[in-house]
């Protein structure tokens, strides 16, 4: 297990290097002169030159990249143009609400998705199956910012049960989690259904029934664990895309998370923040996928991870 983890971590190094190359190139690709943005519209050529020198913008690009990497390794992601504070402080200060939002949303979508998927697989072609699959299709097709607005319309403006901004109390957290978790539930429900249907047809399910095992135990002890193998992959990818999806949800619900930080930074052309935020998102995504691989091993004994 330890050997597998080490190996898996080493394998992520090229991926992470690729990610840093991409975030680094972002600065080179954006239109306009970064020094001009930092120094302001009215800066004199001498001031501009000074800023360039300070940022190392006069160095050859590979040298700039190595500088950047060196900073990343030390945890130094530069300073925000607007606030002047360290990017790492800004980014990590905003990380918690985003990760929490993605985590609770994943939890919700796993919970609803698996139950709905199992019910509709076990009662295939019944009315509950039709309803669940219709709901899943609806949940998938609906843009989540629209769902967020509707929820605010009903439960904040309408009934006043919840709050529409901020993060921390249940009143603040329930609506965003629901908004973000809906599409995930739909995907997981559909995946669970098809995976369960496949597993139920397997010979070993027949073996279990021939033992005299009750149908409930057949489904939950024998079928579900096997059916979860493909679902876990989807959950992992889902968590990753939820981090991204948080950008919209955080904006709708005015949550001071990483997504909103990045959006505001893009508007203000505060590129060190954008760079740092994207980098942290990418790292999170990679590590979530390692966790998924580990879960895989527990579920599927046939996969030899070494």
């Amino acid at each position: 297990m330890l050997k597998f983890l080490t190996k898996r971590l080493i394998q992520t190094i090229p991926v992470l290097i690729g990610v840093t190359i991409l975030t680094f190139s972002m600065v080179l690709l954006i239109p306009g002169d970064p020094a001009q943005i930092m120094a302001g519209e009215s800066a004199s050529p001498e001031q501009l030159e000074l800023v360039r020198e300070r940022l190392g913008l006069n160095d050859p690009i590979p040298v700039q990249y190595l500088d950047y990497i060196g900073g990343v390794v030390r945890g130094d992601l530069g300073n925000s143009i607007r606030s002047g504070r360290a990017v790492s402080t800004e980014v990590f200060g905003r990380l918690a609400p985003t990760v929490e939002l993605a985590f609770y949303s994943t939890l919700l979508s796993v919970f609803i998705g698996i139950i709905a998927g199992v019910v509709s697989a076990v009662r295939r072609y019944s009315i509950s199956d039709t309803l669940i699959m219709f709901a899943a299709l609806f949940g998938l097709s609906m843009p989540n910012f629209w769902l967020g607005l509707m929820l605010i319309q009903w439960f904040v403006i309408g009934t006043g049960w919840f709050q529409a901004s901020g993060w921390g109390t249940p009143q603040q957290m329930i609506l965003p989690v629901l908004t973000l978790g809906t599409a995930g539930s739909a995907i997981i429900a559909r995946m669970t259904r098809s995976s369960m249907l496949e597993v139920i047809d397997q010979d070993y399910i027949q073996t279990a029934r021939a033992k005299g095992v009750s149908e409930r135990v057949v489904i939950y002890r024998h079928a579900l664990k096997n059916a979860m193998v493909p679902v876990v992959t989807v959950v992992g990818l889902q968590f990753g895309s939820l981090l991204g999806g948080a950008v919209l949800t955080e904006t709708v619900f005015a949550i001071n998370g990483l997504g909103r930080l990045i959006i505001n930074a893009i508007r203000a052309r505060d590129f060190p923040i954008v760079q740092g935020g994207v980098l942290v998102f990418a790292f999170l995504f990679v590590f979530v996928n390692i966790i998924v691989d580990v879960l895989y091993r527990f579920l599927n004994k046939r996969i030899d991870l070494n």
């Binding site: 070993y204 095992v213 024998h222 664990k225 096997n226």
Partner: peptide, 28 residues
Amino acid sequence: TDREMRKIRGKDIGMIFQDPMSSLNPTM
């Protein structure tokens, strides 16, 4: 009934299936 049959399956009547590669639960 199915409940009564479950008491017979596996206890009074055992069954062996054709394909040994697919008749065992791979995760148990």
